[in-house]
Design a protein around this nucleic acid. Structure first.
Length: 361
DNA sequence: AAGACGGGGAC
DNA sequence: GTCCCAGTCTT
């Protein structure tokens, strides 16, 4: 383990803070110490880059200005704001978390790690961010930016995802976190990772920590952090049905847990090996709703990439045969007018279908 | 310990 | 098109 002397640590903290005061970014969640707003921003930033988050954050806190406001709204309304941001479990957890904060802590976001960790969606790093940014408590964080900064500072040439490496990184983050002005320090180290100590082509010549950085001194910055080789992503094909009845279109809600949980979309079914797209659609709608359709004209395809696989959606305009009864009898299936689709949270792939291929009359 | 979980930006 | 990002929860 690298030895760090107290005066070295203090020097790094001071250089970082001074750098931040001059070069730090002005972001919408940085003009507040409101723990609820910090919480919202940190959850959004967990998976997503700053540029993408900004507009979502603004809309979210405008729609739900407080923990209480968020807690009293239905999940569907939260997902409507969140749609397109991805990792929807974050939105479900945030919503559940708001209700927990109202019921257990009378609407006050806790200021201890022990309590924060009881809130769904808040792990050690997010707890540290809330504690340091909102309450100025000396709690470390370890997000992707900080991992990269620390791996380079200490020339750690092993996969940061490995448990023992992670443990060491947490220890380093803790040692470097100051006892005072944690608020500024935490933002500074995140900003350093985002704007100087970037994944590709880090700007070491203007880095305030260049003299402390073992990777920079040994010209290893382009080799760190090491990344695990990733597997090729499988590709799946789906038949998607635009099923119409008296001017309305059929949509289905996904189960609350799992991929895209709670979101609505057009019915779609995976093509079986050796099966046809039309068969998949036929059988799927029959099994789910007892609906008999003739899959008519294929109107186009939509491609979409997820983390671990890719899909191609083949979109069919379906003819509903007259003998069908159209009462679904199920709460998770609905016939709606296309103009009302904007009231339902959709995944990005379904939004693409709607924008490109749904003929609205 | 390992896998699941989305979408978008850079090139 | 390909490669990249990333924290928490579940199993």
């Amino acid at each position: 383990m690298t030895r760090l002397r107290p005066h070295e640590i203090e020097g790094m903290q001071q250089r970082l803070i001074r750098w931040y005061q001059k070069h730090g970014r002005d972001l919408p969640w940085r003009d507040t110490r409101n723990p609820y707003r910090i919480w919202v921003s940190e959850i959004m930033l967990q998976q997503t880059q700053v540029e993408t988050v900004i507009a979502y954050y603004e809309r979210f806190v405008a729609a739900f200005p407080s923990v209480q406001a968020l807690a009293r709204e239905p999940l569907q309304k939260v997902l409507l704001i969140w749609q397109g941001l991805g990792y929807y479990a974050r939105a479900r957890n945030l919503h559940r978390g708001a209700r927990l904060v109202v019921s257990r802590w009378d609407g006050r976001v806790p200021d201890t790690q022990k309590e924060l960790l009881q809130i769904p969606g808040i792990g050690r790093s997010t707890a540290g961010a809330i504690l340091s940014l909102a309450y100025d408590r000396p709690a470390p964080i370890l997000d992707g930016n900080v991992k990269r900064v620390l791996c380079r500072l200490f020339a750690i040439r092993r996969d940061p995802a490995k448990p023992d490496v992670l443990k060491r990184l947490w220890a380093l983050s803790e040692v470097l976190t100051p006892g005072t002005d944690v608020h500024t320090y935490t933002q500074a180290v995140m900003d350093l990772g985002a704007t100087i100590c970037t994944p590709i082509d880090p700007r070491c010549t203007v880095c305030p920590l260049r003299n402390n950085c073992q990777a920079c001194r040994r010209s290893l910055q382009h080799l760190i952090p090491v990344r695990a080789r990733k597997e090729p992503t499988p590709h799946h094909e789906y038949a998607l049905g635009i099923v119409r009845h008296r001017g309305r279109v059929l949509i289905r809600q996904r189960p609350e847990e799992g991929l895209l949980g709670g979101l609505w979309g057009f019915p779609n079914y995976r093509r079986r090996p050796k099966g046809t797209l039309a068969d998949a659609l036929h059988q799927g709608l029959h099994n789910d709703l007892g609906l008999a359709v003739e899959s008519g004209e294929k109107t186009g395809t939509v491609r979409h990439a997820y983390t671990h696989f890719k899909i191609t959606l083949h979109v069919f305009e379906c003819l509903l045969l007259p003998e069908n009864k159209t009462h679904t009898g199920k709460a998770d299936w609905k016939w709606i007018y296309p103009s009302r689709l904007k009231d339902y949270p959709l995944a990005a792939s379904d939004r693409k279908v709607m924008d490109r291929l749904l003929d609205r009359d």
